[in-house]
């Protein structure tokens, strides 16, 4: 591992997951990372969070899967992925050649299946699992667990029981109280939280007079959701002790800084990867520049600065 990358000023720690920079990639927006090696050095990213993985392969949703919206986009990919066997056999060996922590986003249709998948991924080369209880685009998993505190806690306990890796729970914004969900995940033993997943939305084609997306509704992402994400991060940071990976519409270093000030220990870049495939590397350099301008020595010194107790 390149020890002094970014002069060690950006180092961060998510429940034992040590990262050289707090800039990670959001699941589903960075493929398996290997698609981006022409544009950036994977080892200069904090962690690569790979595409949502299920026990068996999934074909995803039919029809149009993506549509642009004002300063954002809706997607209803529906967790298409080649399945856990393929990931372990074909993808992980290639990805392991890079010295970068690997986080696998997992999704299943029952707490037991989440446990089974976590156990299967409890192998060398995988550094953490991110529990996806917030995918809005499938009927038999994801959000079903992410909108009910009890079911979510059950999933978190099953995963914790079945893995030695760092467990991150990815929260959905499509709930009445995000702090209640965050606390439930913490009480169930999650090591860290990531937030937010996409907001459910839809677009109607006014000329054809019907929904644009094949799945009717989709997950809204991009800069249009950033204020919601920052607010939720700010609230959750005051409600829990576990570290937070903040995400939602981060397009540049200043956007990332908002999340640190709101209490996040790391951030993830999502939709921006589609616009600029080198952005995950660029943002780390931008954060350093911001720190120089504001006389901040280490990333840790600015985490939570905007929270009420620090004002």
């Amino acid at each position: 591992m390149v020890r002094y990358l970014y002069h060690n000023r950006l180092a961060t720690d998510i429940a034992g997951l040590k990262m050289k920079t707090p800039v990670t990639t959001a699941s589903g927006t960075f493929g398996f990372g290997l698609e981006f090696t022409d544009f950036l050095d994977l080892e200069k990213v904090g962690a690569v969070t790979v595409k949502g993985t299920t026990l068996a392969p999934r074909a995803g949703n039919k029809g149009q899967r993506v549509v642009e919206t004002p300063s954002g986009m809706l997607n209803c990919v529906g967790l298409e992925n080649p399945g856990s066997d393929y990931f372990l056999k074909e993808t992980l060996p290639k990805l392991r050649k890079y010295k970068v922590p690997i986080v696998v986003n997992i999704d299943a249709s029952s707490p037991e299946e989440y446990g089974e998948l976590a156990a299967k991924l409890d192998v060398k080369g995988v550094d953490a699992v991110e529990i996806n209880v917030s995918c809005p685009n499938i009927k038999d998993g994801g959000l079903v667990f992410g909108t009910n505190a009890k079911s979510m806690a059950q999933v978190v306990r099953e995963v914790k029981k079945n893995t030695s890796k760092v467990v991150i729970t990815k929260l959905s914004p499509n709930v009445t109280s995000i702090t209640e969900m965050a606390k439930a995940a913490e009480d169930a033993g999650t090591d860290a939280l990531s937030l937010i997943n996409t907001l459910i939305g839809m677009k109607i084609d006014v000329h054809r007079q019907r929904p644009v997306l094949g799945n009717v509704t989709g997950g809204l992402s991009g800069p249009c959701i950033r204020p919601v994400a920052v607010r939720m991060c700010y609230e959750v940071a005051q409600a829990v002790r576990v570290p937070i990976i903040g995400m939602g519409g981060i397009m540049c270093a200043e956007d990332a800084v908002e999340f640190f000030l709101a209490g996040a220990s790391a951030i993830a870049v999502g939709t921006a990867n589609f616009v600029d495939p080198a952005i995950a590397e660029t943002i780390s350099l931008g954060i350093l520049e911001y720190m120089d301008q504001h006389n901040i020595k280490k990333l840790q010194d600015m985490i939570g600065l905007a929270l009420p107790e620090r004002q």
Partner: peptide, 16 residues
């Protein structure tokens, strides 16, 4: 197909 990344990452343009 409608696509977002063009790099094989987002799976917007995936088909059978």
């Amino acid at each position: 197909r409608y696509m977002a990344c063009g790099l094989g990452a987002c799976l917007s343009c995936s088909c059978q």
